[in-house]
Every structure is written in C-alpha cells, then in structure tokens.
Design a binder for these strands. Structure first.
Length: 419
RNA sequence: GGAGGCGUGGCAGAGUGGUCGAACGCGCCGCACUCGAAAUGCGGUAUGUCCGAAAGGGCAUCGGAGGUUCGAAUCCUCCCGCCUCCGCCA
C-alpha cells in the first residue's frame, strides 16, 4: 500500500514503477476516484455536522418542540442517505484500486520481463570438480538412507518425502547452527504459528495474488508459506519508540506451499516440496531509505556468509522488474550450485518493502515528532531440506559418501555420512 | 466441544439511549513555589482522517463488522479476543 498523497504527487513515478514491474494499473483512474471520494466525504461530513448540531438542540428542547425537530432531522437523514451510499461504494472501489498499486522498484532494479532477465551480480566459490560423474541428491540421499520418497508419496502424495537418519540429523544440525550463527548477529529467535488469519496475507502481499499457492483450513485460516506472515502479524497495530528499532527476528516455522502451477517442475527430489522448514530473518526499522538499503545488504550478506561458512558455491541474482512482486522495492536471490544438474538453484531470497507492508499491518513508530510507518525487510536464514540437497551434491565423494562441512560437524556429530 | 462472564483513553476505572471523545484517580508534559528536589497548586495531555499557508475547524473512533433510532459506549445480530467452570488432550 502506498500513500494516496504520494501517489497523487508522484503520478509519473508510480506509473513508471508499475510499468517496470510489467503490472497494469490505472493511476489516473485512481486519482479521479480519489477526487470523487474527497468531495463526497466533504458533502457527507457537512450534513453530519448539521445533524450533530441539531442533536444538541433536540436533547435540550421541551417535548413539544422536540417532536418538530425530530421531524426535521428525519428529512435531513433521508437527504443524506444517497450520498452516504455513494460514498460507501466509492470507498470500496478505492480500496481495491489502492491494493492494486504496486510498490515502486528501486533505481538499481534492472529492466526485464521475467526471471530470464534477472541479473547475476556476483559469484562466489569454486564449483567442485569431480573425477567421476556426480550423482544427484536423490540418488545420494536414498543410497545413504537419508530420505524416503516412495513412502513419502504413499503417505502424503505427490511431492511427499520422509527425512530419516542422517537426513533428519542434518536438518537439526542446520537449524541449530543457523540459530547460533544468526543469534550472534543480534537476531531474536522465535517459533511462530503457521496457521494464520487470512487478513494478514493481504498485509504481506501474498493474497490475493498467490491464493492458489496457499493451503487453507475449514475455518478460513491459511497455512503460511513463510514465517514472514506471522512475524509481521506479530506487531500489527503496534507503535514503537524509535529507540526500539531496528527489530531483528529469526523466525522458525513450517512452510506450506501448494506449488500450484508448477506441476511439471522439479517433480522429483527435495527441491520443490509442499512442506518444509525455514528460519527467516525479519527486520523492522526506521522509515529511512538509506537504513532499509543498508539492512537489506546486511541480511543478504548474512545469508551469503552463512553459505560461505558451509563452503557452498553460490551466485547472487538481482531480480529484474518483471520478476519482482508487487509489494517489493528490491530483491536479491542467493542460488547455490547444484553440480549434478549443472545449474544454480535458489536457496534464499532477500527483499525490502519500505513502508508498503507496514501500512497494511499498521505498524508505526514515534520518531519524537510524529508517527511514521516502519520499514520492513526479510531474508531467508536457512531453508531445509533444499539446502541439504545442495550440501550432499557438492560434498559427495567417488564412493557415494558425503563430507560434512567443518562448521556443521559439531552440530551433526560426525564429519562424514556413510552407508 | 458445552455453560457462564467480560472487552471503555498510557494504566486503573465510572458511565445502560440525548449537551459523552467520554467522570474521578494514577502516570506523563509545562508553569509556579524551591538553592535544588520532594510535596503542593495551576494548566495541559487519545488516534485517524478531511479542509486550511497557519491558527484553527469539521467528521469518525469506547474489541471488529453490520443493524435499530432524529440521536448509540449504552439496544439488537454476527465475528474476534480474554476469563471461569465442565469435557477432551501432547
């Protein structure tokens, strides 16, 4: 959600932003509707003022006089009815249009129609060179008894999986390592609900756009695909002091994604699954662009350093306008190298939103002079099991065993996974 | 799941149809008194939105959404949350 005053004063910027994101939105129509909304409000409020003034008279009047006054008031009320109904209708349309206005992408976001035009801006690490044909994570993990897809499909269905043995242990090791790694960077650990009220998905921007990709319950609640939703909802409607900011959270939750519309993609393995676990970095900060930018770089670097500490080769993608969702200002993805496939796959996504989400969640802070909406940002800390697939593929040996990265060994308890 | 109770400003707590955006108290801010502080006295102290250069003014808001009424914190309906008891349960 943008500020209507900002939209009116910066019509060209808003329109150019939508165009860069390849989103159609009628800004001129919105502005015309807003003029209508304001004139209707003025008319209705004037009559209400009249009515309020009269109410005082009625309460003071003697009963004979009162009857006459009340008759007058009935007339006034009837004359108000039409404008009130019109205003209600205009407000409804106005809200819909306001929700449709996308956030403005940063200058540094490249032009581009879709994900094919995302820009690689950095690559780190040496891709492993194997003297043998590297196996994919499916074969490796099945052989090492880390995963069971067959019973996963039997139990859950398509995309189902069980992690077992070293697969389960490696998950716990990664969570615990991440908890220590990010805890050392001033993040507060949280375990958050995954079943969340529908309204909050509008706040983050996941609804209405991604409705098909979300599971929901018979109570009309939704299962969140990321802890970003409950973690933002946690502070909804709250007011901070500037001194309390920034807030840094490390939120752990199960994540549920229907993966509707991607039925033909990644149908095997642990890359694309219906449920997984994720620790997410989420930050709320003061409403300064420079602060948002600095924190965005920081939380993205946090993840890169986490991946570097594991020794996984990766690249950083700068997401182009056409692939940037409506609510975001800018996004980096971190992709790890998957040697068996011979390509990079996403491990993390770091985004900032300015006050776009905070307006919808009504999260403010008092800067000493006035109340302002906070800025919000988020970035993956670690998502299992996808990162496990990256680890086993990169650190496999000729005999099918997998070496555990040094930093993980004390959490995993062993330095190698063998049959 | 069943039964009952409750939701008012930063806190506490009145208010059951009419000058109620809301008493009293606490807290907080300013001023006075004081060398200073405490105590005391006086004044101020919600949010959102619209108009306005500003001063100021209008409107809305008593958990949320609707409704009844000339008029709703107060009455009605639905929803949400909290508390107590019963049931069930990791």
């Amino acid at each position: 959600m943008l500020d209507i005053r900002f939209i009116k004063e910066n019509k060209d910027i808003v329109e150019a932003g939508a165009k860069k994101k390849h989103i159609d939105v009628d800004i001129a129509g919105l502005i015309a509707l807003d003029d209508k909304r304001r004139s209707l409000m003025a008319a209705v409020e004037k009559k209400r003022a009249e009515q309020n003034a009269f109410n005082e008279k009625i309460s003071r009047a003697a009963s004979a006089e009162r009857t006459a006054f009340i008759a007058d008031m009935k007339k006034l009320k009837d004359s108000m009815q039409k404008e009130e109904n019109e205003l209600k209708e205009v407000m409804k349309q106005w809200h819909l249009l306001m929700l449709a206005v996308p956030n403005i992408p940063d200058m540094s976001v490249p032009e581009g129609a879709n994900e094919d035009e995302n820009r690689e801006v950095k690559a780190w690490g040496d891709k492993p060179q194997f003297s043998f044909q590297p196996k994919n994570h499916i074969e490796l993990m099945e052989t090492l008894g880390m995963v069971d897809f067959e019973r996963g499909a039997k139990t859950h269905g398509f995309r189902g999986y069980f992690l077992k043995g070293a697969g389960a242990d490696l998950s716990w090791a990664l969570w615990n390592y991440a908890r220590d790694f990010f805890g050392g960077r001033k993040f507060n650990p949280f375990i958050v609900p995954a079943i969340v009220k529908k309204e909050f998905f509008y706040g983050t921007g996941h609804l209405p756009r991604e409705a098909d990709d979300l599971y929901h319950t018979q109570d009309e609640d939704y299962l969140s695909g990321t802890a970003e939703v409950p973690m933002m909802a946690y502070h909804s409607g709250e007011l901070f002091r500037a001194a309390d900011l920034p807030k840094r959270y490390l939120a752990f939750s199960p994540c549920f994604r229907r993966e509707a519309g991607s039925y033909s993609k990644d149908t095997k393995g642990l890359i694309r699954v219906h449920e997984f676990f994720k620790l997410e970095q989420l930050v709320l900060c003061e409403a300064e662009h420079a602060t948002s930018v600095a924190l965005h770089e920081e939380i993205n670097r946090n993840f890169e350093e986490f991946v570097e500490s594991l020794g996984l080769p990766y690249r950083r993608l700068l997401i182009c306008g056409g692939d940037l969702s409506a609510s975001k200002v800018k996004q980096y993805d971190t992709e790890a190298w998957f040697p068996a496939e011979g390509k990079y796959r996403e491990l993390s996504s770091a985004s900032y939103y300015h006050d776009f989400q905070a307006r919808r969640f009504n999260i403010k802070y008092d800067d000493g002079e006035k109340r302002r909406y906070v800025h919000s940002l988020n970035c993956t800390a670690v998502a299992t099991p996808r990162i496990i697939a990256a680890i086993v593929e990169n650190f496999q040996e000729a005999d099918g065993i997998v070496k555990i990265p040094g930093v993980l060994q004390k959490y995993f308890g062993k330095s190698v996974i063998t049959k």
